[in-house]
């Protein structure tokens, strides 16, 4: 029924939305949507892990380790994410060991999807390190002193006292960065990951409906970003500690 309506739309208004009536185009687009969601989710988790880990190492007592984290943050924040992606996929990918695939052939360790996750998580993670560091610095010294007085070790105090408070303080900035990251997943198009932009390009090349597909793509991304913003806002509210602000 819906398919029939969109076929009519093509005939009457010359708006050719193949994804709603052509099974193949529809599946291509759905697959793209699923890939983008998977890519975003993986990058989201990994970049937050990098951010928390980096912020922890930044407080390390061993200076070279701090320098390494600072170098990582400075370098990844100030170089283009697409160039980073090429560096990892083509550059680092070229020296990865070959692994037999069991069917007689071989393939490199990490495929394009995995490299996209690694590269974009490192990029977003560099921003997250700074965001979490600012959050940790905003936790009052008296709180950590109190934890120490209660016999918490440095690591335990970090996990149980500092991080939960710092995380709440960091959330608004983290939300912004995660939105940027979800928008940034489109660069995976450059290395052929079948995400939304790749799927759209495949469809508009085959069905020559560039303007329609571009609008669909735009609306899809605005919806994805909108959902992320709403979810993060919910989390922000759920984690709010009554009476505690800074």
């Amino acid at each position: 029924m819906v398919a029939e309506w969109f076929r009519q739309l093509k005939e009457s208004a010359n708006v050719n939305l193949t994804i709603f009536y052509d099974r193949f185009d529809g599946l291509t687009y759905l697959n793209g949507l699923a890939t983008t969601v998977k890519l975003s989710a993986a990058c989201l988790v990994l970049s937050v892990v990098f951010g928390i880990g980096g912020a922890w190492l930044q407080r390390s007592g061993w200076a070279p380790l701090r320098w390494l984290v600072n170098g990582y943050v400075a370098f990844f924040r100030n170089t283009p994410p697409l160039a980073q992606l090429y560096f990892f996929y083509f550059g680092v990918g070229s020296i990865m060991p070959l692994i037999p695939d069991g069917a007689g052939g071989t393939h490199r360790l990490f495929d394009n999807f995995q490299w996209a996750v690694i590269s974009m998580s490192l990029f977003a993670g560099a921003f997250n390190v700074e965001i979490f560091r600012a959050g940790i610095e905003a936790v009052p010294k008296a709180t950590t002193d109190a934890a120490e007085a209660l016999g918490y070790s440095r690591f335990k105090a970090y996990i149980h006292i500092v991080l939960p408070l710092a995380f709440r303080i960091s959330l608004p900035a983290l939300n912004n960065n995660l939105v940027t990251m979800v928008k940034g997943t489109t660069i995976a198009y450059a290395i052929g990951v079948p995400e939304l932009l790749t799927a759209s390009a495949t469809i508009w090349n085959a069905s020559t409906n560039i303007p329609e597909m571009m609008n669909v793509l735009m609306i899809t991304f605005l919806a994805l970003v909108g959902i992320l913003v709403v979810v993060m806002h919910r989390i922000e509210r759920a984690l709010h500690i009554p009476g505690y602000n800074r």
Partner: peptide
């Protein structure tokens, strides 16, 4: 030359870094 892939992309990153870091 395959062995050039890594250094060339790292070199490009370095140039961008040299331009953007002072601005930051």
């Amino acid at each position: 030359r395959v062995e050039l892939l890594l250094p060339v992309y790292a070199y490009v990153l370095l140039w961008f870094f040299a331009y953007c870091y002072p601005i930051a």
